[in-house]
Design a protein around this nucleic acid. Structure first.
Lengths: 214, 214
DNA sequence: ACCGAAATTAGAACGGATTCTAATCTCTGT
DNA sequence: ACAGAGATTAGAATCCGTTCTAATTTCGGT
């Protein structure tokens, strides 16, 4: 697997995503480019929510998005970059859901579990997609903000007002650990080796220990 | 990715591995089959320890092992099954290393960390291999005993004499969580996002919390 | 309105995993 | 020793991600 080369003009978007074609004026993204990018991601998500990554074939995505294969590769230098973009959208959704209705459990651990289980339910609505995306994310050499974003979400859930900047290294490590446990349990559930209840229980067990002294 | 079909006669080996050709007498594996299997795994491991999974091409593996491509696929229905077999061997090594020299730290958490860091150093000796293998394992739909084996190792390290059978569900969940943290940190290290020391520190932090009351 | 740079396109081409085929080989039981 | 069932083989064929090519189109600056 290749690391996607840095696109000359691309410098915004989620860190690690290089999915904006270079431009005369660096960093500028025209409306049509933006929409094209969006159409591509939507087409990809739609396909993936059916048959997983397998159904999300680059040729098919390009076709559905009404774009040539070469153009697709210009926006997303590899299939993985596309997957990362799709996942990014999912996390955005979770993030705004949390803003809309913050977790209200009594303890930090309880609030973190709340967030994680909400994310779990969200992802389980499209299991094929979730499965494909999570797996892909974990292996990719593309630098994804996934783990850190999730750890940050948990940090804020556990201690409202805390951010990656103000947290101690230990706190960040602990929410990071919790998020890796979550990812793993999610995968096990998607593999059919856990029920939703088992997953929840295991996450609660881990969260209780990891975030006990928050 | 396809799930490997169950081979008619295969019922031993690590659970989840279907890598023995069917036989008239089920479960029987002749010496020559056994050796052929071993030669294949060795060839695969040798190739992978150079350039990672990329260098471990099925055609090449077949060639090095002195079998036809079709035969390779008869023993290992997919590349992933082969990867799983290679990883199995690595875990065997770790397991016997631990038997030879059991962890002797004072606390359960300390002993678990000892085991994990020993595994880490073992894997880092062949970073290409480790990287490839760990990633592959995580994505595969092939039912790997990986997580459970690791959790079992940690269980025994934390409380000598404890086994997957005698441990409480909670204990098993906790060692399982620790092993998923380890895998994640290992990946981050392989990605170059952590130093060995950072990895160790994070694992210690997680282990101290997770195994505090063992 | 025109130029040139960059974007876009259709489609061919390439590489590696996986599948398929037809022939040959190797047993095992009789 | 012989038949029949797998096992094995060499190699072609297929599928899909990725790369490449040679036009063609779009657009900002003049």
């Amino acid at each position: 697997m290749r690391v996607s080369p840095v696109v000359p003009g691309g410098l915004e978007g989620h860190p690690g995503l290089n999915s904006v074609p270079s431009q005369a004026a660096p960093g500028v993204r025209t409306r049509s480019q933006h929409q094209r990018r969006k159409r591509i991601v939507q087409a990809a998500a739609a396909l993936a929510s059916r048959g997983g990554v397998e159904a999300m074939q680059m040729r098919t995505v390009a076709e559905r998005a009404g774009v040539a294969l070469g153009t697709l590769y210009r926006y997303f230098p590899s299939k993985m970059d596309l997957v990362v973009a799709v996942v990014g959208e999912e996390i955005d959704l979770l993030e705004s859901s949390i803003e809309r209705r913050p977790p209200n459990a009594a303890t930090p651990a309880g609030r973190a579990v709340d967030v994680l289980m909400r994310a779990t339910r969200g992802l389980m609505r499209e299991p094929e997609l979730a499965d494909a995306l999570i797996r892909s994310l974990i292996i990719t050499e593309v630098d994804t903000p996934f783990g850190d974003r999730m750890a940050g979400l948990l940090l804020r859930a556990a201690v409202p007002g805390l951010t990656a900047a103000t947290a101690t290294e230990e706190q960040f490590a602990l929410t990071g650990s919790l998020s890796s446990v979550w990812v793993y349990e999610l995968l096990e559930m998607l593999r059919g080796r856990r029920t939703y209840e088992q997953t929840q229980r295991r996450i609660e067990i881990a969260a209780d220990r990891l975030l006990a002294e928050f």
